[in-house]
Write a protein that binds this DNA or RNA. Structure first.
Lengths: 345, 345
DNA sequence: TTGAAAGCGCTAACAA
DNA sequence: TTGTTAGCGCTTTCAA
């Protein structure tokens, strides 16, 4: 391994001196621009390699007015972040694309405060810290789809397919297809009283799942009247389940695994067997889902792919390229928490 | 709300011109340095406010050779990230401190490859992108405690209390106390055959929990022979449980909630009641833990506090200040998955 | 093909 | 108390 170089990192002047050329020549040589002989280019590259030199990101940023960084601002309480396996996968996908691109990710977590969130974006722009931004957790009446273009900041939104974000392109998540698959699966098993526990109505990815459930129910000729909000929390999911159970559904579709897990416990405490007396489906395919008792039937998205697509799209926008990204379809994972309804009920 | 300013952001020259002073005066005025009259300072500040001006981070970075950013490089597969509520809380805590500091967080996720991880740090330093870094997931034979100081990069490690990271200060997580509390709780209930499922032995936070279990068992005069590795995954936890169950423990302590959840399912499939025939404890207090059936007795850390302490320490180190951070104690949350052992077994 | 020089936006040392 | 100026490390003219 090369020896580490503590203290001041080498500058372009060091490279130039050692290669016996001017700073300008070094720049041309290393950026593969014409105006320098092959021989010189080779020597310069070798010296740069040997010195372990990289251009200072700040010096480059001053010239090109590019920060070589993209931003992700999240208005969520840490606890709400922990709940969400989508986020971790998304990050991984983003990084996989950023990796070779020369840009890095600047992450800010600001708690549930839309105003602080907007200020974060403003400040990142004013300080020229980022060249573009991701827009997650699109809300009802969200100001960001207007704010980011107004700031002159390229942006990519991630949300349910069909979401309108004005000038901001959207990587469409096909949550709806996942919910429809869950409804179809349950109908096929013979269920007719299929309830739905939505998340937090302020989020588009919550309302879109509710809408998808409604539409799927209607398309099967079933009433879409049994639903309640669980706010994506365990407590909320449990409370919604308690209320819904009074109306005797034979199956409940939850907009998240966490709520489904809480719901299963409530059902069991009410003396119902899962899936014998009540079928349950979740959403997300948390790591726990496959290892519950019974294992949870759920919808698996591919957050890594979504992150990669979003990052690809954002970089393309920043660099003025065009791409037509494909966003992956969700998948229904059928496990043990769904079964035909009991004839008793 | 102030109108957004698309296009080129204002520079210090714009502020100077509008305020009718020189650029130098603007700099002094806004950084609250002496050498400028109160009257001028007031006017300059007002103009800056009105123009919505912030100094370019890159220009400042060139002068002070500071990037006003700190780095966090994570060598984990996205799936392994999703499993871990600690990480999300830690991020939240870090951000809460960074928020008012003028620094931001640069995050890199590189997959499980120690060499890529090291290269990430090297590159961030060479490009002068960060002023300091966090060191998480300390492993056996980890090269980073040597690498980061060699790169001249201030760093703060986060790991089990007592971990030696050479020149890198460690924010000690007192996992051991949590495990000891779990053992104590079970012993008090009357258990004597208490097994332990560790995580992935390569991580210090895995071995430290195993060691804590051993030591606690011995201190109660019990043998510490029933243990197995579950690698922090659901599959691993299930497999370890199957093996351990043959040796008829009355309780199993798991090094993570995910493994505990998988273990409970395995026990139930083997015809054992939890907690009637087998008591179970987890670690992390995942959002699901309280909503399982039965709810899981587990150890809760305070990852938000840990993140805040680590960030505080890192900033202090970068700025040459001294602090003596306190790291919070973990807490045993007793729920329904633990009970006195059945007299039958 | 090469070298010298200007300038990106800012701070700090200087002179007025 | 002020305004001027020299750079920080780099890219990009422009001359040689």
């Amino acid at each position: 391994m090369s020896p580490e170089t503590p203290g001041t990192p080498p500058t372009i002047a060091d490279v130039a001196r050692l290669a016996g050329v001017s700073k300008g020549a070094v720049s041309l040589a290393l950026n593969d621009k014409p105006g320098v002989s092959e021989e010189t280019r080779r020597r310069v590259k070798q010296v740069a390699e040997q010195l372990n030199w990289r251009p200072s990101i700040h010096a480059r940023a001053m010239l090109r007015s590019r920060a070589f960084a993209v931003g992700l601002v999240l208005a969520r309480a840490p606890r709400q972040l922990a709940v969400d396996p989508f986020f971790a996968g998304f990050l991984g996908g983003v990084e996989s694309v950023l990796d070779g691109s020369g840009s890095v990710l600047v992450l800010q977590v600001v708690g549930e405060d839309a105003e602080k969130e907007a200020d974060s974006y403003r400040q990142l722009v004013r300080e020229r810290r980022i060249d573009g931004a991701f827009l997650l957790d699109i809300r009802d009446g969200d100001q960001r789809p207007a704010l980011l273009p107004a700031l002159g900041l390229p942006a990519v939104a991630v949300g349910p397919a069909g979401t309108d974000c004005g000038q901001v392109p959207v990587v469409g998540i096909r949550d709806g297809d996942g919910i429809a698959a869950a409804v179809g699966h349950l109908v096929e098993l013979g269920h007719r009283k299929i309830a739905f526990v939505e998340g937090a109505p302020v989020y588009r990815h919550s309302t879109s799942r509710l809408d998808a459930w409604r539409q799927a129910m209607r398309s099967h000729g079933l009433p879409a009247d049994l639903h309640d909000a669980g706010h994506f929390t365990g407590e909320g999911g449990a409370a919604a389940t308690r209320r819904l159970l009074r109306r005797r559904p034979t199956a409940i579709i939850y907009a998240s695994d966490l709520m489904a897990i809480a719901g299963m416990s409530v059902a069991r405490e009410a003396g119902l067997e899962v899936p014998g007396d009540l079928s349950v489906t979740g959403f997300d395919d948390n790591p726990e889902a496959a290892h519950l008792h019974p294992p949870l039937t759920t919808v698996r998205q591919d957050p890594v792919a979504v992150g990669a697509v979003a990052a690809e799209l954002l970089l393309a926008q920043i660099e003025g390229r065009r791409t037509t990204p494909e966003s992956p379809a969700p998948q229904l994972i059928v496990r043990g928490s769904t079964a035909p309804p009991s004839p008793m009920r």
